[in-house]
């Protein structure tokens, strides 16, 4: 195993249409380990790069855990652990338990949406090789980047650079490791 000297090669574009076109091209060309960078969410970019998204499943699980957990808590507290007989009314008065069950369903789903949207993206992560690229500051402002990473199976410095040049970017740069 020889360490790759660079993280990847990045091409810089001026518009989001160009970036999506380039991403589709690169995917068709067989590249898989790559990422697009844009200052706003570009429709279809993740699909063009072949990215998968399992977040909704996690959020569903969070909601289910929150809901069942909430109902269980109420039932356990008011029926098992600390029952209070008020005029012989039923202890397991489920309609009165619904509002909190609902709130905790929402809370569980929301907490998991937040935690997993960041966690699955590997955030928080203060350092990343992409930040070594001086122009990369503009990815959060007005420029669009496509970076093909060096550990992609089809990555070869010369041919990959030539391929990226064929996409007519503004600039191409190596991203240091």
């Amino acid at each position: 195993m020889n360490e790759p000297k660079i993280f990847g090669i990045a091409a810089e574009f001026e518009s989001h249409e160009q970036l999506v076109r380039a991403a589709k091209n690169a995917y068709a060309h067989g590249f898989r380990k790559m990422d697009g960078y844009a200052p706003f969410p570009v429709d279809g970019l993740a699909e063009a790069l072949g990215k998968k998204n399992r977040l909704p499943l996690f959020v569903l699980c969070g909601g289910v855990v929150g809901g069942f957990g909430g109902y269980f808590m109420e039932w356990f507290a008011n029926v098992v652990s600390y029952p209070i007989n008020i005029g012989g009314r039923p202890l397991h008065s489920w309609p009165a338990f619904i509002p909190i069950t609902f709130e905790l369903t929402v809370l569980g789903a929301a907490l998991s949406a937040f935690a997993f949207s960041l966690g699955l993206s590997g955030l928080p992560r203060p350092y990343h090789p992409m930040f070594n690229l001086p122009e990369f500051e503009r990815a959060s402002q007005d420029r669009f980047f496509l970076c093909i990473e060096a550990d992609d199976k089809r990555f070869q410095e010369e041919s990959t650079r030539q391929f990226l040049e064929s996409l007519a970017p503004v600039r191409i740069a190596d991203v240091p490791q």
Binding site: Y37, P41, A46, K51, F116, S121
Partner: peptide
């Protein structure tokens, strides 16, 4: 939090 504007980040 180290946000990089990557397609992955944006999608999630």
């Amino acid at each position: 939090l180290g946000w990089r504007n990557s397609a992955d980040h944006w999608q999630r």
